[in-house]
Computed example of a mutant assay.
Amino acid sequence: MNVKSNYTNITNGTAKCKHCERIIKTSGNSSNLSSHLRNKHSEIFATCGQKKLSATFDKVVTISESFKSAAAFKENGHKTKEISEAIIYMICKDNMPVRCVEKEGLRGLLKKCVPHFKMPSRSTVTTMIEEKYIQCVGAVVKILSSVQDFAFTCDAVTIPNSTRSFLTITAHFIANDSLNAICLAASRMDQVSDVAKPDDVFDDFMSSHNSSILKEVRSASEENKELKLYFSLPQAAWESNPLDVWKSHKATMPGLYKVALKHLITPGSSVPSERLASAIKCVVCDARSRMTDRHIKQRVFLKSLSPKYWV
């Protein structure tokens, strides 16, 4: 029971006591209401005070809880691990240097927010990033093992401040009803290839590609006239998600649905691949021109990962 529960017709100016029906001026607060109960209805006021006192004691942290909270911020405590994981995620996703853990600003922020947390050293953070890379690679391999179709794009990137060139390989695929892109590799290019490219490579590729599409479309059209049904449908809105559109037609056009998913993984432009490849230039900035090739590969891979694949 609180003080205001003993009054009715409470407004910004007055309130009526339930016990003696006296009109009390409130002045926008409950000070006069408490004074009236304390002077005229002391037993009821004591009840309100006991309730408030008991609620206050309920919030008091016990000694065991205090020790448990302190243990959470030790070297192997769960709070320390959670905050360290968040720092690693921030460094990889925001292309921040490892030495940011030594900066006064970040240390001051964490000191204010979590004073019991001990910031890991620069070498410890580097080790944690390498461990996180191994964990995420294992998780991605497990996910990709259940995917049937992939589209791969390659991009060459030259880092101006170190005159190093890298070849990035990006995998595009559909998983969990969404398009995904992960930079699988960022390999250093040491020399220019002198192998001559046959003139008919492109023609052979296009003929093979077209024949595979024609074969798939024929098999789909022969089954329940799916191709004819598809051409009779109205065009979908340009802002609609093609995966959602084809998912709605899965029951009526199962054959074309499989064909569509197989070819929708191919990016319509080079933007997704170039966006991931350009992460190398952000990772290896002027202040980090001496970063090793192994660490560049790890950072670019972790940068390209969606949060749902971050383990």
Results as ranks from 00 to 15, higher is better:
residue 78 H to K: 15
residue 18 K to D: 11
residue 64 S to W: 10
residue 83 I to V: 14
residue 26 T to I: 02
residue 60 V to K: 03
residue 71 A to H: 13
residue 26 T to G: 01
residue 27 S to T: 07
residue 47 T to I: 02
residue 62 T to G: 03
residue 49 G to L: 06
residue 22 R to S: 04
residue 51 K to M: 04
residue 75 E to H: 09
residue 66 S to Q: 06
residue 60 V to F: 03
residue 83 I to M: 10
residue 80 T to E: 07
residue 47 T to D: 00
residue 85 E to C: 08
residue 59 K to M: 02
residue 72 A to D: 11
residue 72 A to I: 08
residue 47 T to Y: 00
residue 69 S to H: 11
residue 72 A to S: 14
residue 31 S to E: 11
residue 47 T to G: 02
residue 43 E to K: 04
residue 25 K to E: 09
residue 62 T to H: 06
residue 57 F to Q: 02
residue 64 S to C: 13
residue 28 G to C: 01
residue 74 K to Y: 13
residue 73 F to T: 14
residue 32 N to G: 00
residue 18 K to L: 14
residue 40 K to V: 14
residue 70 A to K: 13
residue 21 E to P: 01
residue 22 R to W: 03
residue 45 F to C: 01
residue 37 L to C: 04
residue 63 I to L: 12
residue 22 R to T: 07
residue 58 D to W: 11
residue 69 S to L: 08
residue 51 K to E: 02
residue 30 S to R: 00
residue 65 E to N: 15
residue 25 K to N: 09
residue 50 Q to H: 09
residue 62 T to D: 10
residue 76 N to A: 10
residue 75 E to L: 15
residue 75 E to W: 08
residue 65 E to F: 10
residue 32 N to F: 00
residue 41 H to D: 00
residue 74 K to P: 13
residue 37 L to Q: 04
residue 72 A to T: 12
residue 77 G to E: 06
residue 41 H to R: 03
residue 84 S to W: 08
residue 47 T to L: 00
residue 21 E to M: 06
residue 76 N to E: 14
residue 71 A to T: 12
residue 24 I to R: 00
residue 25 K to I: 08
residue 31 S to I: 10
residue 27 S to N: 08
residue 36 H to P: 06
residue 20 C to L: 07
residue 71 A to Y: 07
residue 34 S to C: 07
residue 20 C to V: 12
residue 40 K to F: 05
residue 49 G to N: 06
residue 46 A to D: 08
residue 71 A to I: 12
residue 74 K to H: 13
residue 62 T to V: 03
residue 48 C to R: 04
residue 45 F to I: 01
residue 84 S to I: 11
residue 45 F to L: 04
residue 36 H to D: 06
residue 30 S to T: 12
residue 49 G to D: 02
residue 74 K to A: 14
residue 19 H to D: 06
residue 16 K to W: 07
residue 56 T to D: 10
residue 61 V to E: 08
residue 45 F to P: 02
residue 84 S to P: 05
residue 39 N to V: 03
residue 28 G to Y: 00
residue 42 S to I: 11
residue 38 R to P: 06
residue 53 L to Y: 12
residue 31 S to T: 08
residue 71 A to Q: 14
residue 74 K to W: 10
residue 62 T to P: 01
residue 63 I to C: 06
residue 44 I to M: 04
residue 67 F to H: 10
residue 19 H to I: 15
residue 83 I to D: 02
residue 39 N to E: 05
residue 73 F to Q: 13
residue 79 K to Q: 13
residue 42 S to N: 12
residue 68 K to V: 14
residue 40 K to T: 08
residue 20 C to H: 03
residue 22 R to E: 09
residue 37 L to N: 04
residue 63 I to Q: 13
residue 54 S to R: 01
residue 33 L to S: 02
residue 63 I to S: 10
residue 57 F to L: 09
residue 21 E to H: 09
residue 38 R to T: 12
residue 22 R to C: 09
residue 83 I to W: 12
residue 35 S to A: 13
residue 33 L to Q: 00
residue 78 H to R: 08
residue 60 V to W: 00
residue 50 Q to E: 03
residue 20 C to Y: 02
residue 84 S to G: 05
residue 65 E to C: 12
residue 18 K to I: 14
residue 49 G to Y: 01
residue 66 S to E: 07
residue 65 E to R: 12
residue 32 N to Y: 01
residue 55 A to Q: 10
residue 48 C to L: 00
residue 27 S to W: 04
residue 70 A to C: 14
residue 33 L to Y: 01
residue 51 K to N: 05
